[in-house]
């Protein structure tokens, strides 16, 4: 464990807690893409299949349970909670996220480190996580104005990915045979997707104006 990875995990944890807090306290999910949340729930479900068979550490297991629990409860809130679901903007959140799932699954079947069920599902979760933010970014562009909690949520998610890249650089130089192109490339693609959001987020912060993305 290195400081970049710990900071990355904590930032990732903060992002889901910010979102859960927003939904739970103000009972609203305005501006939040249910499609992205469903994709994240699928990502964690496919990535943590070995949660009970491959014990890494208490920290690892606890964090996996938190990510599984939070992502599924956010989806539950947005789908079934009688108050929250009313604030879900389903005719704006129209990204066909099934078009993301299938190509990621095919790619995972073609490019993976080992052709076993668990390894393919794990690789699928990496590719899917790389694109899972797209429906949310599209929704932000559509709804123009971003309430600061949703903006903070996306910002923290991007920061977690950036810190993970620093973690991989650190591990590459400190652990002799730590080379994982699949993880690195999908993580890099994911981080690049946030680049333009970061740019507009920074601009709005610098000019101290409401964040809005160009159409």
């Amino acid at each position: 464990m290195n400081i970049f990875r710990l900071a990355g995990d904590m930032t990732h944890l903060a992002s889901v807690l910010v979102l859960l807090l927003k939904i739970h306290t103000i009972k609203s999910c305005a501006g939040v893409s249910l499609k992205t949340q469903e994709l994240y729930a699928l990502v964690f479900a496919c990535r943590y299949l070995d949660i009970f068979t491959n014990f890494v550490s208490l920290y690892n297991t606890v964090m996996k349970l938190i990510f599984l629990g939070s992502s599924f409860s956010i989806v539950w809130y947005m789908r079934y909670h009688k108050v929250v679901r009313r604030s879900y903007d389903k005719d704006q959140d129209t990204f066909r996220h099934y078009f993301l799932v299938l190509p990621c699954l095919v790619l995972a079947l073609l490019i993976n480190e080992k052709f076993t069920f668990k390894e393919v599902m794990w690789t699928f979760s990496l590719y899917l996580e790389a694109v899972a933010i797209l429906p949310q970014l599209v929704l932000l562009q559509r709804t123009r104005n971003i309430d600061n909690l949703t903006g903070q949520y996306v910002f923290l998610l991007g920061a977690y990915r950036g810190l993970y890249i620093l973690n991989w650089i650190y591990r590459y130089f400190t652990e002799p045979h730590f080379v994982h192109w699949i993880t690195w490339i999908s993580g890099l693609v994911q981080t690049l997707l946030y680049a333009d959001f970061f740019y507009y987020y920074y601009q709005s912060w610098k000019n101290n104006q409401k964040l809005h993305l160009p159409a």
């Binding site: 990875r5 995990d9 990732h12 070995d50 491959n54 890494v56 550490s57 690892n60 964090m63 996996k64 990510f67 480190e113 080992k114 390894e119 794990w122 993970y164 973690n167 652990e175 045979h177 730590f178 080379v179 994982h180 993880t183």
Partner: peptide, 10 residues
């Protein structure tokens, strides 16, 4: 084997 050392990440 080296594959599993990437599995210690979340």
């Amino acid at each position: 084997d080296d594959v599993d050392d990437a599995k210690d990440e979340l």
